[in-house]
Each structure stands twice: as C-alpha cells, then as structure tokens.
Design a protein around this nucleic acid. Structure first.
Lengths: 254, 254
DNA sequence: CGATTAATTGAGATAAATCAATCGATGTGG
DNA sequence: CCACATCGATTGATTTATCTCAATTAATCG
C-alpha cells in the first residue's frame, strides 16, 4: 500500500494522474483515523474519490461547514466577489491540497469552490472524525499541520502584491505553483494551467498582459506551453525573474 | 474574572490600551490550559506581557519555533525579502492576534517579525503546552480555530491583488484593519497607523500614491488623520470604495 | 534648536489597461 | 464531413493610472 513518491513519475502518463494517499495534504489523517484500526471505520468518515465535473461547484459560500476536501486529481478555484459582481479568485487548489480550511472557525464556507476541470476529491467529514475518540489528538495534530502549511503558502500572495511588474508576478505565480506541486511530487515539472482569464484574475492583471508575458517567457525558453499544458524548462531563471531569494523562504528553509 | 466584551469600552482611555485575556486571539487558550487548575501551572507556560521595544525583532526568519505570540498591545509587521534586498511586508499583526502560526508546520519561523511601536506580547511555549495532557485536546482545538481564522482573514490579501485602483487598495486595507480590530473590540474606530512607507510596501503602491489617496479620503470626510493617528468617519462609504459586498464575506457572513 | 527622518507636492516617464479587430480552436448540427 | 457558431487567445494602437524623480515642507528627536 505504501508508495515512495518517486515511483510514480510521469513517464507513463495514466489516464488520470492522482495523488496517492501517502502524499495527501492531510498529513495521513486517513491513516491515523482508521487504517490501523479497520478499513470500514475509515469508510464511514472519508468518501474517497468523489468526482466533481468541470465547472461544477464543490460547495458555495454560505454552505454549512461539514469538513475539508483533499484534492485527488484536477484543479479547483475558490472565489469571492466584489460588489460590482466581478469575481476575484482567492486561491487555486492543486492535487494533494486541502480545501475548506478557512471554514473551520466559523462553521460556514465563506468562498465558493469550482472545479476547473474534471476532478476528484476525498470528502472528510469532521463530525465523524471527532467520534474517533482514541484517534482524536492525532487527528487534530494533522489538521493543525495542514493549516499551518496553508498559512505558510499564503505568503506567496503577499509577494505577489509586492511584485512591481507583470513579469515578476507571472514568475512568482509559476514558482508558487511548482513548489506546491513538488510538495507532493518532487519530479513535477509540468501542469495543466487554468484558463488565461483565471490566471489574469488571480494575479490582478489584464488577460492580454498575461498572454504577452507568457509568450516572452516561451521565447526565452523558460517555459513551453501548448494549449493548457505548461512545462517548466528553466526553473532557476524563473526564480531569478521572480526576484525571490534563492532558498525558497516560503516552501522550505535551506 | 470573566469579562463580557461590551463592558470594556474605550471611553476611559488608559495609558496603554491592551487586549484583555478574554478577547485574546488564542481563543482562551490560557484559560483552558491553566485557569481552572492553578495559576502557577499557567505561568510556566505563558510569559505574560513581554515587552518588545519599537523596531526590535520578536523573532527572525530561521529561528527555531518555540511557540506563538499573542499581541497584547502595539503593532508588528512580518517581513520577507526579494533577492534585491527589497523588503516585502507579509502582514501586520494587531492587538489580540497571534504571531508565528506559519511556523508550526516546519518548526522554523520563516519570517522576521518587528515591532512598529513599543509593544507587548504573551509568549506561549508550545512544548510546555503539550505537557498539560488533560488539557491537550482543548489546547489543540484553540489552535485550530486560531489558524482557521488566520486563513480566513488572509483572504483580504487576495482581494488586494484583484483591486484595480490605488484607491480601492487603500479602502480594502482600511476595511481589513478595522474588521480585524473589531474582532476584539467592537467599538474600535481609530488606530495608530504604521508609517506611510510600510503601508505602501504592504499594498504594493508607491509612498506618494498612498499619501495622495489618504489625502483624498480625508477631503471626502471618510477618515481623519493627524500624524500616525487615523480615525474612521464613514465606514460604509469606505466599504463602498473598497468594492466589497455589503456583508463582509471575509469577516462574517450575514 | 539644528539635524535627521517622514510627508507632501509637482512634473514627466512608463508599464499596463483598455479598446478593437483578428485569428484559432473547439464543438454542433445539418 | 463540412459550414457555422462560440469561445479563447493573440496582436496592435491608444490611453491612463501610477511610478519615478526631484524639490519642498513638515515633523520628530537628540
């Protein structure tokens, strides 16, 4: 049952690339909760591989909090709105990451979350989790780590605000995405981009600007992109353009 | 010993306005840990009212994680750096809020935190907390709530990125600050601003732009500001300019 | 009360937004 | 299987908000 990350490289692209449970962002919460007890107990808590179709909602702002979701495959966006109806993307959610953490406190989901392609998640029921009394401390510990990690990664947002050119914003975006992907797959060097308009929205740039910068990046051999597929060719040069200090202060120290 | 929030309004300004323990951002972690046991146990865990002088470091990026800090009074900034040495402010920390949450996961503080005026904190030792076994679940629960709240409030950063004018950024900044202050003091309507250059840095704007926008706000009677002191005069109009939907999606639903 | 640091004000340069038109891909139905 | 329609991406021309640079004024502090 155990996978050692490197084994699932992407030489043989499967139909649907999934994050296996050992690399899930919930810090083995599943295993803690049930694996060494009995599988059936776990199944009552976690609905594995729930499918969410492209453009479907995972939940909506205002829904009552039931638990968090771990992304198995695909990509999601969580959104908020300005009063003119303009949507603002708060975050993208990549495989292995958790969705819904902001709702634990108030008990209500504050954003709406939408799949950007056909995706799948693990649905983890918090109320059920709490019933696993003998595992509860470990459960809480996992949640704390997942939350702290999220807070840490949110630093990239601040760096985006401080970036003083569109080029730097795109570079930071790419670095951010890939350091997050690599948290669950050390070999990751390509990913299926969201649409231009979603990237532009997230970065606070015009659609056209995003296109022009990506084109420049491609001309400089920093990336290759065809259609939605994007491949990193020169990570360190992108890091340079992002202006980030060499050791990645957000993802890892040293 | 119990205070019902409303009792401590700010009609009689003390020399140093502090957040009392009942309104601390740690969700009564102190009380949970020791209050109904014995005070001495608590004192071994929490160093109350540790003073941090203006411009002093609370901790530095790379320091080993020891625990989180609750701001009793004053204001802090946490910072990261671009490779050209330019500083980027990741966040401000207001009274009642917690500092250091991003470090729980990796066990290392990833930012440097600096006092922006003479301030005081509660220093809460996580290792000691963990020894209070019979209180541990409650302790973890408090930490989870504090973290989730932080994740929720970080949404404002995303909204800042999406703002499409300097005016909107400033307005969002003000709304963000005051909704955070009001989480611990419902009556809050004034606060001691950081320096212009820190605000500008945080918002990704030029120093001069911040000055010009604040001046416009003052001319429109949205705020009053003399020196570092800023007072909100027309909250709803500021919310309008921020473009945020009327019910504040970040702070509270409804 | 000078000396240092912060804030203000103005003029000009510029990166990115906006506007508008074209091109390309994707998908549908006749 | 090929128009046709829709949607997304690209490209160019123009406008504009904000940055940058520079000079002045105000505030803070030993």
């Amino acid at each position: 049952m155990k996978n050692t990350g490197s084994r699932l490289s992407m030489n043989q692209p499967k139909k649907l690339k999934e994050v296996d449970c050992d690399n899930c962002g919930l810090y083995r919460l599943c295993q803690i909760a049930g694996l060494d007890a009995d599988e059936s107990a776990l199944d009552s808590v976690v609905e594995r591989r729930k499918k969410i179709a492209n453009a479907d909602y995972l939940y909506r702002a205002g829904d009552r909090f039931s638990g968090v979701f771990a992304v198995k495959s695909g990509i999601f966006k969580s959104i908020s709105y300005f009063d003119d109806g303009r949507e603002q993307i708060i975050d993208f959610h990549l495989p292995g990451e958790l969705i819904g953490l902001e709702a634990i406190d108030e008990g209500i989901y504050l954003q709406s979350v939408i799949a950007l392609e056909n995706s799948s998640v693990c649905d983890m029921d918090f109320a059920e989790m709490e019933k696993l009394e003998h595992k509860f401390i470990a459960f809480q510990g996992s949640v704390i780590h997942a939350l702290s990690r999220k807070v840490r990664l949110d630093q990239y947002q601040s760096l985006l605000i401080g970036a003083q050119s569109a080029e730097q914003r795109l570079a930071i975006f790419l670095i951010s995405i890939f350091s997050r992907l690599r948290a669950h797959d050390m070999q990751a060097h390509s990913f299926r981009m969201p649409m231009r308009k979603d990237i532009a929205n997230y970065l606070g740039l015009a659609l056209e600007t995003v296109g022009r910068v990506l084109k420049r990046f491609e001309e400089s051999k920093l990336i290759e992109s065809k259609g939605r597929h994007l491949k990193i060719c020169n990570y360190s040069e992108i890091q340079q353009r992002a202006g980030l200090i060499q050791y990645d202060a957000v993802t890892k120290v040293a």
